[in-house]
Simulated scan of single mutants.
Amino acid sequence: MKHTSQFAAGKILATCQNGVGILTIDNPERKNAINAAMWRAIPDAMHWLVSDAGARVVMLTGGGTKDFSAGADISEFPTVRKDTATARVYESDNSAAFSAIRNARIPVIAAIRGICYGGGFGLAAAADLRIAADDAAFAVPAARLGLAYPADAVQDFFHALGPQLARKMLFTGLAVGASELCEAGFLMEITAPAALDAAALSLAEIIAANAPLSVQASKLALRAVATNDDDLLREAEVIGAATFDSADYAEGRAAFAEKRRPVFSGR
């Protein structure tokens, strides 16, 4: 059964079917630029996908056929980001959106085509896995706009791009192509534009078919290592140990013995 919900007047779309959630930034007439209401809606959409719709993995994508996201909607800046006070509120919403992707208990796959700039690039950097079409272009234009990028998003760039490429992109604001980011390890795969959605969906379906508790324990442990967070590491150890008492572990052993594909329930 397919579940669907809309947020931010339909500009953030969430669907889920067979454990695969899709979160779409749906503003194609503006290259999927993200306005303030859309930033605020992203955590709500992620919560709905994970907690209400039962997603085991989420695919993050841009609406239409051309672009992932041009980033924050600059036309709003004279109102919502006009000075330090308003910028703090705005960037709090940015950070909540990045955190919803980064800290989701399930994996998030970014499927990227066309423009992936600024805040859109930040959302992609917060994802666990990234696949891009060969026409994708990436940039962090903050230095060309005279503003500073949220520090937590800079942390995502540092981890995802590596220190040298992160510095290059933040300091110069120059656009970088998919091939360079694939070589740097930011992207796991490059496809033809027409093949992007199928490649991302295939990966999502493989993940969704695996034992959810096992995948969640792995994601938490990877986050703990990346951030050198001892508290997260202990939490991951507790969740990992609990998998051995789960129904899914019993199902996995039974399926192996019976030479059949396991059917995991997430319990």
Rank of each mutant, 00 (worst) to 15 (best):
residue 83 D to T: 10
residue 65 T to V: 15
residue 266 G to H: 04
residue 93 D to R: 13
residue 109 I to P: 09
residue 69 S to R: 00
residue 67 D to M: 01
residue 154 V to P: 02
residue 109 I to A: 04
residue 252 G to N: 02
residue 6 Q to R: 07
residue 75 S to M: 09
residue 38 M to C: 09
residue 152 D to K: 12
residue 128 D to R: 05
residue 245 D to K: 15
residue 260 R to V: 09
residue 238 V to R: 13
residue 116 C to I: 01
residue 162 G to T: 11
residue 108 V to R: 06
residue 159 H to C: 10
residue 116 C to W: 00
residue 260 R to L: 07
residue 33 A to R: 00
residue 2 K to G: 06
residue 86 T to K: 14
residue 258 E to T: 03
residue 19 G to P: 05
residue 254 A to M: 07
residue 267 R to S: 11
residue 105 R to E: 10
residue 244 F to K: 09
residue 121 F to A: 15
residue 149 Y to F: 15
residue 220 L to Q: 06
residue 157 F to T: 10
residue 195 A to E: 12
residue 28 P to R: 05
residue 67 D to G: 03
residue 227 T to L: 10
residue 259 K to D: 14
residue 184 A to F: 00
residue 72 A to H: 01
residue 207 I to Y: 01
residue 57 V to Y: 02
residue 70 A to L: 08
residue 108 V to K: 03
residue 249 Y to H: 14
residue 221 A to Q: 15
residue 113 R to C: 12
residue 84 T to V: 10
residue 49 L to F: 01
residue 66 K to S: 10
residue 152 D to T: 14
residue 84 T to H: 13
residue 207 I to V: 12
residue 98 F to E: 07
residue 36 A to I: 00
residue 162 G to H: 07
residue 113 R to I: 06
residue 113 R to S: 14
residue 148 A to K: 15
residue 115 I to D: 04
residue 130 R to F: 01
residue 105 R to F: 00
residue 22 I to M: 09
residue 68 F to K: 00
residue 156 D to M: 05
residue 32 N to Q: 07
residue 149 Y to V: 09
residue 247 A to K: 09
residue 238 V to L: 14
residue 69 S to Y: 00
residue 104 A to W: 03
residue 143 A to H: 08
residue 103 N to A: 10
residue 189 E to A: 09
residue 180 E to L: 02
residue 122 G to L: 03
residue 231 D to E: 15
residue 191 T to M: 06
residue 193 P to L: 09
residue 182 C to T: 11
residue 194 A to T: 11
residue 107 P to N: 05
residue 15 T to Q: 11
residue 183 E to F: 02
residue 135 D to E: 04
residue 130 R to S: 08
residue 78 P to G: 01
residue 137 A to G: 07
residue 144 R to N: 13
residue 83 D to I: 07
residue 179 S to V: 10
residue 130 R to M: 04
residue 32 N to K: 00
residue 186 F to P: 08
residue 48 W to P: 05
residue 129 L to S: 12
residue 195 A to N: 08
residue 79 T to P: 00
residue 146 G to I: 06
residue 230 D to Q: 13
residue 43 P to C: 01
residue 176 V to L: 11
residue 249 Y to S: 13
residue 226 A to Y: 02
residue 162 G to R: 05
residue 37 A to T: 08
residue 47 H to D: 12
residue 249 Y to T: 13
residue 174 L to I: 13
residue 190 I to C: 02
residue 233 L to G: 04
residue 144 R to H: 12
residue 161 L to C: 05
residue 251 E to Y: 06
residue 89 V to R: 11
residue 161 L to Y: 01
residue 195 A to I: 01
residue 51 S to G: 11
residue 136 A to W: 00
residue 76 E to D: 13
residue 110 A to W: 07
residue 218 S to T: 15
residue 12 I to V: 15
residue 110 A to P: 06
residue 222 L to F: 08
residue 175 A to G: 03
residue 161 L to E: 06
residue 121 F to D: 13
residue 21 G to W: 03
residue 57 V to N: 05
residue 86 T to L: 11
residue 62 G to A: 04
residue 108 V to Y: 05
residue 3 H to I: 03
residue 184 A to Y: 01
residue 254 A to N: 10
residue 248 D to F: 03
residue 158 F to D: 13
residue 71 G to Q: 04
residue 181 L to M: 10
residue 182 C to Q: 14
residue 210 N to K: 00
residue 233 L to R: 04
